[in-house]
C-alpha cells in the first residue's frame, strides 16, 4: 500500500490511544489527589506533566490542578492534549477515508465534534469524571468498531501497530508517574534500589488506594483481584501491568501484539524494527519483577520507552520513508 496512507493509519492509531490514555492518567491523578493526605499536590501534577513529556510545554505558570487539567484536556496549543490528539486522529483518518469503514470514520468524527462543541472548562470545573469517562468510552467504541468492521489487511495492521506501541509507552508512563510519587514520599535520600524493595513490601493503606487507582485506570483492577486474590502488593501491580502476557493493557502484551503485526507486515524481509522490538519484548518476558526494583524501576521504564521510540523510528524508516538513492540528483538535474 501507499506509504503515506500507511503512515496516516499508524498515526490515527497512536493519537486515538494517546487521547484515551491521557484521559485515564488525568482521571486517576485527579481523583486520587482528592483524598490525598499529602500536601504535595502540585508536585504530583508536575510529575504527570513530566512523564507525558509536556513539562516544558506547560511553561512557568503555577502548577495548580485546574490549570494543569485544562492544559492536558482542552488546550489546543498543547499538541499532547486530549482535544489535540483526537483532532489529529480525526485528521489522519480523514485522509484515509477510502481505507477505513464508514462506521469507524463516523465515530472518530463524532468524538471530535463532541469535544469541540462542549464547554470543556465548565465540564472540568463541574464534573470531570463524566468527561474522562466519555472519552474512554468513545475510544473503546472506536476500537470495537474498527475491530469488527475492518479487514485484517496491511491498513489494519499499521493502525493496530500504532495503537499498541503507543499504549505500551503510555502504560510505562502510568506506572512511572505513580511509582515516582511513592518514591518521593519515602524521601529523597532513599531514591535508589533498596527503597524500591521497601515500598514493594510495605504498602500501607493509602498506597492501597493509589495502586488500586492505577489498576483501574488500566481497566485491570478486577483482573488483578482474580489473579492475586486479596493482597495489594506494588510489586504484584507492577508485575501485572508490565510483565503479564495475557492482560491487554500490559506492556508485554502490547509488545507481543506489535510483534505479530510487524511480522505480518514485513513478509519475511529482514527488519530492524522487528529485531529491536523482539529484544525489548524478551527483556520483559524473561524478567523477574524483583530484579526490576534492584536496577531501579524508573530507570528500567525509561529504557523501555527509549527502545520503543527507536522501534517507531525504524518502522518509519522501513515502511514510510523510502527514498531512491539518486532522487536528489534527479531533482537537481531535471
Amino acid at each position: 500500500m501507499l506509504a503515506r496512507l500507511a503512515e496516516n493509519l499508524f498515526w490515527a492509531g497512536r493519537y486515538m490511544e494517546r487521547a484515551e490514555d491521557t484521559a485515564r492518567m488525568v482521571d486517576v491523578t485527579y481523583h486520587t489527589l482528592l483524598e490525598s493526605p499529602y500536601g504535595e499536590v502540585s508536585k504530583s501534577w508536575e510529575q504527570l506533566l513530566e512523564v507525558l513529556h509536556l513539562r516544558a510545554g506547560f511553561g512557568d505558570g503555577p502548577l495548580d490542578r485546574d490549570r494543569v487539567v485544562r492544559f492536558l484536556v482542552a488546550e489546543r496549543s498543547n499538541p499532547g492534549s486530549i482535544t489535540s490528539s483526537v483532532a489529529k486522529a480525526r485528521e489522519n483518518t480523514r485522509s484515509v477515508r477510502e481505507l477505513v469503514s464508514t462506521e469507524l470514520w463516523e465515530h472518530i468524527n463524532d468524538l471530535h465534534l463532541a469535544l469541540s462543541s462542549r464547554d470543556l472548562s465548565r465540564d472540568l470545573a463541574d464534573q470531570p469524571y463524566e468527561l474522562f469517562a466519555s472519552v474512554r468510552k468513545a475510544s473503546m467504541t472506536i476500537y470495537g468498531v474498527a475491530s469488527e468492521t475492518m479487514p485484517r489487511d496491511d491498513g489494519w495492521r499499521f493502525m493496530a501497530l500504532g495503537r499498541l506501541l503507543e499504549r505500551a509507552q503510555m502504560i510505562c508512563r502510568l506506572i512511572d508517574v505513580r511509582y515516582s510519587q511513592l518514591e518521593d514520599l519515602a524521601g529523597p535520600s532513599q531514591r535508589l534500589a533498596p527503597l524500591g524493595a521497601e515500598i514493594a513490601q510495605g504498602a500501607d493503606r493509602t498506597d492501597f488506594h493509589h495502586w488500586m487507582a492505577v489498576l483501574k485506570s488500566a481497566s485491570a483492577f478486577e483482573a488483578y483481584r482474580r489473579r492475586y486474590r486479596s493482597s495489594m502488593d506494588p510489586a504484584d501491580v507492577v508485575e501485572f501491568l508490565l510483565l503479564d502476557p495475557d492482560l491487554p493493557r500490559s506492556v508485554l502484551f502490547c509488545l507481543t501484539g506489535s510483534m505479530h503485526q510487524l511480522e505480518a507486515l514485513r513478509e519475511g524481509r529482514p527488519s530492524r524494527a522487528a529485531r529491536q522490538l523482539g529484544l525489548a519484548a524478551s527483556a520483559l518476558r524473561y524478567r523477574d519483577v524483583s530484579e526490576l526494583f534492584d536496577v531501579g524501576l524508573h530507570e528500567f521504564l525509561g529504557q523501555v520507552q527509549s527502545e520503543l521510540g527507536q522501534v517507531a523510528e525504524s518502522v518509519a524508516d522501513e515502511f514510510f520513508r523510502h527514498q531512491p538513492s539518486g532522487a536528489m540528483h534527479a531533482i537537481a538535474t531535471a
Binding site: 501507499l2 506509504a3 532522487a327 534527479a330
Partner: peptide, 22 residues
C-alpha cells in the same frame, strides 16, 4: 490514488512510495 508527494523521480523513472519500498 496518489498525490504528488507519493511519487518520486529517480534517473528519469517515476516511482511511488509504498510500504514495500519504491
Amino acid at each position: 490514488l496518489v498525490e504528488g508527494r507519493d511519487l518520486v523521480v529517480d534517473e528519469h523513472v517515476v516511482y511511488m512510495r509504498t510500504t514495500q519500498g519504491l
